[in-house]
Computed example of a mutant assay.
Amino acid sequence: MNVDFNKNPDGLVPAIIQDASTNKILMLGYMNDDALQKTISTQLVTFFSRTKQRLWTKGEESGNVLNLVDIKLDCDSDSLLIKVNPKGPTCHKGTDTCWNETNKETYGFISNLEETIESRIKAGDSEKSYVASLFAKGINKIAQKVGEEAVEVVIEAKDDNDDLFLDESADLLFHYLMLLQAKGFKLNDVVSVLKSREK
């Protein structure tokens, strides 16, 4: 790995730390060549501390180490993306990330949709909200709706109309997310089961 440590007068390059599972950015540190070599040899992320003016292995005092998974060099050879499995919170203030974010796996729009479903359930306005009205009818009705949508997906899969197939697939996913919440779960719980089956 040919890192260009000479671009900066202090001989340091930024090292962006990312959780290998959740893809959340956890922190930003700086490395010189010695820090990089120690990270590779120990498999624990080590930085050059600009305040202490020495090598510093993350978690050397707290025990909240960053276990190395992968290192990537950017196109200009002057910054690093380091994927890790963190042990405990990353920030010295006790939070998961240095931006005070929870380090959990999210799925962009799908996670936002889960939050919308949850807020509609809590609001409970069955006259204005389809979600609330379906939840008011109970879990049997929600499960029945998932079954109906699944059958419609199968029917459309055997046809040639891709638009209808995608529409029915969206309906199925939407109602399945509702069923998960009716059972007290979220998509992350299903993903955890899938991960446990990974070989």
Rank of each mutant, 00 (worst) to 15 (best):
L166P: 00
A35W: 11
L73I: 15
N100W: 05
L113E: 02
G11N: 01
E118A: 10
V151Q: 13
L180H: 04
K52P: 04
D160I: 08
A123N: 11
D167S: 14
T97E: 08
K87E: 04
N103W: 08
E168R: 10
L26P: 00
Y130I: 15
L187F: 13
A20K: 02
V151C: 06
N2Y: 08
L80A: 05
R197S: 07
Q144D: 15
N188L: 07
K183G: 00
N64L: 11
A136P: 00
V84N: 09
R197G: 02
L73W: 11
S129V: 08
A15M: 07
A20V: 01
S41V: 06
D171Q: 12
L66C: 11
K183A: 09
A35Y: 07
T51K: 10
D74M: 03
Q18G: 04
K183W: 02
K72M: 05
K104H: 08
L187I: 15
D74N: 13
I25D: 05
T102C: 00
Y176F: 15
L81M: 12
K87G: 02
L28S: 01
L68E: 13
A15L: 01
A15W: 11
A170C: 06
R120T: 04
L194E: 06
I142R: 01
R197T: 08
V65C: 06
V45A: 10
L66P: 00
N100D: 14
V131I: 15
L26Y: 00
N112D: 09
L36F: 08
S41D: 14
G63C: 09
G108V: 04
W56T: 02
L194Y: 11
K7T: 08
N64E: 09
T90V: 14
V193A: 14
E105W: 01
I155H: 07
D33K: 15
D96Q: 03
S79K: 02
G124L: 10
D159G: 07
A143M: 13
D10P: 03
E198A: 12
Y130M: 13
L173G: 04
V84T: 10
Q43L: 09
D33S: 11
T39L: 02
G184R: 15
C91Q: 06
D34R: 15
Y130R: 12
V151R: 15
A132I: 11
T102A: 05
E61N: 07
S21H: 03
G88F: 05
L194K: 09
C91K: 00
S169T: 08
D33R: 15
E118I: 03
E61P: 01
D70Q: 15
L164S: 07
T106G: 05
K104N: 04
Y130W: 06
I117Q: 06
K183F: 01
Q181Y: 06
S133T: 10
T116K: 14
I139E: 10
D10A: 01
V69M: 11
V153C: 11
